[in-house]
Nucleic acid binder design. Structure first.
Lengths: 244, 244
DNA sequence: CGCAGGATTGATTGCATTCAACGACCGTGG
DNA sequence: CCACGGTCGTTGAATGCAATCAATCCTGCG
C-alpha cells in the first residue's frame, strides 16, 4: 500500500481486483504523470468534450453529473481517492456527462496515449481496467434501483452504507464507524433524485431514530448493521475482492 | 449485414463501433455457439450466480432487473436483437442482477472460455468489447437522469425515443416512424420507476396530445422531433457511429 | 363460454416538492 | 473587531405528482 507514489493506490486498486504481476504493477507506477490541483466545483470534463488525458484521484472527491433540459441536475456517481476518472475515454470518443471536483482535488494526470499503450501491451492490466469499468456500471445500476424503487429514507441510508463500504475498501478509515461525507444536502439530493429540503428532513429522521449521529458533515453510525437494514443494503454489487 | 449467421449481427455491432479487420470478423463468426430458445420471463441469469456462457440475442428482447427488499422491481436495461448479454461475466465472478427474457428469445450461446481466448488474442475485439460495455454504462447513466430528474411524461417520451433510436441503429426498421414495444405497461413502469397505472395515464396523455398513436403494442410517431422535444432526448449518450 | 393477463378509469391518499423565511457558520474587508 | 455577504442548513405551510386501492373492460385463448 504505497501511498507515497501518486499511482500507488491506483495500482493497489487494479491489483486487488485482478491478478497483476509485479511487472504489471511496476509498469503502472512507471506511467508518466502530471500532478494537478483543482478547486471544488471545477470541471474536469464536460459533456460532449473529447478527453486526451486520464485523471486518477490522489486526494479528494469528484462526481459525475448530467443536466436535464429544465436545468435539474442528476449526480451519477461519486469518486473516492484512489479511483480513476476517465477509463471511458480510452474507448469512447467524447464524454456524455460532466465530471466535477466535489472537494479540493489532488490529481495524477496520465496522458491517454501512454495509458492506451499500457493497456494494449498488458492483457492483465486491460482485464483489470475492464473489471473497474464494470464495477462502476454495477454501481450505477444499483443507483438506478435505489433511485427508482426506494423511498427517501431508504435511499439515503443506502447511500450512507455505500459510502462507508467504499471508504473501507479504500482503507480510508470509516471502519471506526464514522466518516466525513463531503457533500452538501443539495448534492445528496441531486444524487438521490430528491430535494435538499427533503434530504434535510430525512437525515434528521435517521438521526432522531438513532441510526446516525451528525457533527457538521461528519457522520457516525452506532450500528452499521441497523443502517444496512434500513437502507436495504447488500455490498454484492460493489464486487469487492473477498468477504461477504 | 449477414443476418443468416447467428453471430452476424454481433460482428456488425462490434465492427460498427471499432475497427475490426476481416480477420477479426471471421474470428467472431468462428466462435462455437449453441442455439437456444427461451420462453418469456425465463431467467437467463440470476443475481449471485456465476455465468459460464455468454448469450447473444439472435431474435427477441431481454431485460435486466433487480429487486428491492420490499419486492419492488427495477428494470435496469432492455436488450434488442443483436446485443450481447453477458460481457460482464468475462471479468466479474458473479452477477449482481437478474436477466430475463422479455419476449420469446432466440439465443446464440457462446462458451465463456472461447470468448475469453478471443478477447485475449485480439486487442481490436477487446477494444470493441470495452466500447460495448461502456455504451451500456452510458445508457444506465442516462436512465439514472431520466428516472431521477424527469417527470412521468418526459420519462416516457424519452424511453420511446431511445427505443426508436436503438431499433434504428440495429436496422430493425423503426425508421418508418413506428415499432412494436414488446413491454406491458407494468414493465414500462418498472423501467421508469413508476406504476403501471401512471404509465397508462401518461401514454394516453401522449396520445391525446398527438405525440404518439397506439394500436396494441405498436407505437407510431407522427413526429419523432416533437417526441424528442417532449422527452428531452439527445442521442449523444448512445455513442452511435456517425451522424448528429 | 369462461378464464387470465393486461389495459383502463375513478376516487382517495401520501410522499416529496415547492415556496418562503430564518438561522448558523465562515471568510472577507472596512 | 465586527459588520457584511454568501453558502449551507433548518423549519413550516401549502401544493401537487404519482401511488394506492378498487373496479371494470377488453382481448386472446384453451
Amino acid at each position: 500500500m504505497s501511498t507515497d507514489h501518486p499511482l500507488g493506490r491506483l495500482a493497489d486498486n487494479l491489483a486487488g481486483r485482478a491478478r497483476l504481476s509485479a511487472d504489471d504493477r511496476a509498469a503502472i507506477l512507471a506511467l508518466p504523470v502530471i500532478r494537478r490541483t483543482m478547486q471544488p466545483s471545477a470541471y474536469l470534463i464536460r459533456e460532449g468534450e473529447k478527453a486526451t488525458t486520464c485523471a486518477v484521484i490522489v486526494d479528494g472527491f469528484a462526481y459525475r453529473q448530467k443536466l436535464a433540459g429544465d436545468g435539474a441536475r442528476q449526480i451519477l456517481a461519486i469518486h473516492l481517492p484512489g479511483e480513476v476518472l476517465d477509463f471511458q475515454n480510452l474507448f469512447l470518443t467524447h464524454s456524455d456527462h460532466n465530471v466535477q471536483a466535489l472537494t479540493l482535488l489532488d490529481l495524477a494526470v496520465i496522458p491517454m496515449p501512454a495509458l492506451r499503450e499500457l493497456v494494449q501491451a498488458r492483457p492483465a492490466i486491460a482485464a483489470a481496467v475492464c473489471h473497474n469499468i464494470l464495477v462502476a456500471a454495477a454501481i450505477s445500476r444499483e443507483w438506478l434501483l435505489n433511485n427508482g424503487r426506494r423511498n427517501a429514507r431508504t435511499r439515503l441510508a443506502h447511500l450512507l452504507c455505500e459510502f462507508a463500504t467504499r471508504l473501507d475498501a479504500q482503507e480510508l478509515g470509516s471502519a471506526t464507524g464514522s466518516y466525513e461525507l463531503p457533500m452538501t444536502q443539495e448534492q445528496i439530493g441531486d444524487a438521490l433524485g430528491l430535494t435538499s429540503v427533503h434530504i434535510n428532513r430525512s437525515l434528521r429522521a435517521l438521526e432522531r431514530d438513532g441510526l446516525i449521529e451528525r457533527h457538521g458533515r461528519m457522520v457516525t453510525f452506532p450500528s452499521i448493521a441497523a443502517l444496512r437494514a434500513v437502507g436495504d443494503f447488500s455490498a454484492l454489487y460493489l464486487h469487492l475482492p473477498e468477504e461477504r
